[in-house]
């Protein structure tokens, strides 16, 4: 399939997902009304009647939530692509190798102990403190896993996945200790973080999320060429003029930023970063520029639709989005493992 056709199709799917998701919920808004309300925000009048209540629900509640889905989905999928490129392995994923757990642990520590330990920091940067903690957690985990899993210029896949398991377990233990020290309100927040949810969406947190995500969404595709070259191995990439050390640093910093900020506002949403680039590579091949762009679009659609399912399927109860992505993603991961076992390409 041509990359251009796929990207156009994915843009269409994403627009559809956004309009559908903005309209569905306890208060029904028709697609035409949704479009009219969204257009009005952009300053364009379209002659479709809607009530004030519908406008408020869309602009205050659903639009931020849909934007959350779009930016988090795109960022997680692109970070997944970048991490798979860096590890030269299609089984790497920020959640599987523990980066998200690291970010979540640091976030939880910040929630429970932040006010006592870093009172000054909280006063200074307020809402950004959680994002900063998540970034630090993601960054440290990414470096540790990368160092552990590299030997002689190659990634040892089993080591990478096992290191991810160990770090996730360690992070879970740390989170466990925090829950013992937490009060009721903090406990609820921690549970929310572990399962993932877009329920915390509002314009204020979008103010943190969007700029950081944009850094990733713009920055990561600029690394396409060196990431392509990296499939030859670090040494051979260096022989064709790639600065491998600088590439590694950029990927790890950008991924930690992206995963960190996503985890800090929505908790752990698994499998999007793993599955999305896979589907895209199947369709248009592994060239990173194309995979980045198409994965970003598909990831955004997946998270927006998954969130729609979460909040409508057994309404008024909301299912955490991490459960939905895991229900879809985990079987897919098992399928990948079985397939790789047959072709012997990865292991």
């Amino acid at each position: 399939m041509k990359a251009g056709i796929l990207v156009t199709t994915l843009i269409g799917i994403l627009l559809l997902a956004v309009i559908l998701s903005a309209g569905m919920g306890a208060l029904h808004v028709s697609p035409a009304q949704s479009i009219a309300i969204l257009l009005k925000q952009a300053g364009i009048q379209w002659d479709v009647p809607y009530s004030d209540q519908q406008e408020v629900v869309i602009t205050v509640i659903r639009l931020p939530r849909v934007l959350f889905g779009v930016f988090i989905g795109a960022t997680l999928a692109m970070c997944g692509t970048a991490i798979q490129g860096l590890f030269r392995n299609p089984l790497a994923d920020p959640v599987l190798i523990g980066i998200s757990s690291g970010a979540a642990l640091f976030t939880v520590i910040m929630i429970v102990l932040g006010l006592q330990l870093f009172a000054g920091l909280f006063n200074m940067i307020g809402a950004y403190a959680l994002s900063l903690a998540a970034f630090a957690g993601a960054f440290i985990t990414a470096i540790v896993v990368y160092r552990i899993s590299q030997a002689g210029g190659k990634t040892i896949v089993s080591t990478m996945l096992l290191a991810g398991i160990a770090i996730s377990a360690l992070a879970a233990a740390g989170t466990g200790i925090m829950t013992l020290m937490a009060n009721d309100a903090q406990l609820r927040t921690i549970t929310f973080w572990n399962l993932g949810s877009l329920g915390g969406a509002n314009w204020q947190s979008l103010g943190v999320l969007i700029p950081v995500c944009l850094i990733c969404l713009i920055g990561l595709p600029t690394l396409s060429k060196p990431l392509n070259a990296l499939v030859l191995g670090e040494t051979n990439a260096a022989h064709i003029g790639i600065n491998v050390e600088s590439l590694k640093t950029k990927v790890i910093v950008l991924t930690a930023l992206g995963v960190g900020v996503c985890v800090s506002v929505s908790g752990i949403i698994g499998f999007v970063g793993l599955v999305t680039p896979h589907i895209i590579r199947k369709l248009i091949g592994p060239e990173h520029k194309n995979v980045f762009i198409a994965s970003g679009l598909l990831g955004a659609s997946i998270v927006v639709i998954a969130d729609l399912v979460c909040r409508t399927i057994i309404a008024p109860i909301e299912i955490p989005i991490g459960i939905v992505t895991a229900l879809l993603g985990a079987p897919f991961f098992l399928y990948l493992l079985l397939k790789e076992k047959q072709t012997q390409i990865v292991f």
Binding site: N89, P90, K154, L232, G233, N236, G285, P286
Partner: peptide, 8 residues
């Protein structure tokens, strides 16, 4: 050469 992604 250890190539793990399906480039042409």
């Amino acid at each position: 050469y250890q190539v793990s992604l399906p480039f042409t």
